[in-house]
Design a protein around this nucleic acid. Structure first.
Lengths: 187, 187
DNA sequence: GTCTATATACAGATAGAC
DNA sequence: GTCTATCTGTATATAGAC
């Protein structure tokens, strides 16, 4: 198995995506990994340190996958569907996007975490807006690239959220369908 | 001023929309209203009782306003914009929709509250789908009414969420713009 | 309907031994 | 790097007086 720090991070991430930072305690986290809470404090002195580490690593992985999508050969529609796939994974286990969950818990976060959260959304939407702009001619929407990127991001974050309470995956499926319909069918 | 019970409900609602149920304690709630926590327990024996009462009342008010929108004279676009206005109020004070926030905190809720949450989304989306269906000819989207209702609801809930972390209202504005663009401009 | 007082549990965090 | 032990604060909830 991996080292303690990695185990703590993996478990904490999963728990926060399911039930939020406020529901995560150093005690229960330690129990599940098989150490004591003081050991968790050794790796992450304060809860904010753990949270910040998680947001940073999450953003890094997310951006790396965006770059993979950019690099892959394929039409616009395929790239947009690959973007939706990133959200599908969370949905499969009734989780939220880490940063979506933390946006709901914004007032429980310190400034450093809020800054990291903002960075996640900025980078994600910038990537999306750039992709849309590069394929502007293929789009059927009248909205600008940046606005459309906002609409897509809100829609996907919201779909994960609403599907937990009502819908059993229907909201994310509808989002996928709508995003696909943005690309003109020309042949 | 109103009676204690009403004051407690109003304050609890505002606090949950800002920072969630887990951040609301009977003690601080009591302090802010000027009573003791045991008095809060008199009105709402358990926290779940308070939460359920809030969801019920919130849904009732929300549905009443949907019916007002249905009753008002006006074109489809005006009605959709009136629907967006319902979310604008929360955004103005950095709040989420009560039920959006609770969807994030789903695993902290009892079954009764989860049922009420589901009802909120079902009623809201049913209303929206019915409106869209009645004006199908005026819509520029290729999606079915129910799917489009899902997309709109996800988008608005998500816009409130993401705007807290990044965007300063930009996501909700983009949603409004997109929703307006769904209605054909024919003249 | 509101109070005082209290039971019980758990939170985040730290000191210091090994 | 992990432990035991502990401090301190706060949570939900209840009993019983007024």
């Amino acid at each position: 198995m991996a080292d303690t720090r990695s185990e703590l991070e993996a478990l904490a991430l999963a728990r926060i995506q399911r039930s939020g930072v406020r529901d995560l305690s150093f005690r229960t986290l330690a129990d599940e990994v098989g150490v004591k809470s003081s050991s968790v404090h050794y790796h992450f002195p304060e809860k904010g340190d753990l949270t910040a580490a998680l947001i940073g690593a999450y953003t890094e992985r997310f951006v790396a996958r965006l770059e993979q999508i950019s690099a892959q050969s394929g039409v616009l529609r395929a790239k947009l569907m690959a973007f939706v796939d990133l959200f599908e994974e969370a949905a499969a286990s009734d989780k939220l996007c880490l940063c979506g969950m933390l946006a709901a818990e914004l007032f429980a976060l310190d400034d450093r975490c809020r800054g990291l959260l903002e960075l996640f959304f900025k980078q994600s939407e910038d990537w999306l807006a750039k992709l849309l702009k590069a394929h502007k001619a293929e789009l059927s929407s009248s909205l600008g690239s940046a606005s459309l990127a906002s609409v897509i991001m809100s829609g996907l974050e919201g779909a994960l959220l609403v599907d937990r309470a009502h819908g059993a995956g229907r909201h994310l499926r509808a989002q996928r369908q709508w995003i696909a319909s943005l690309v003109k069918n020309e042949r």
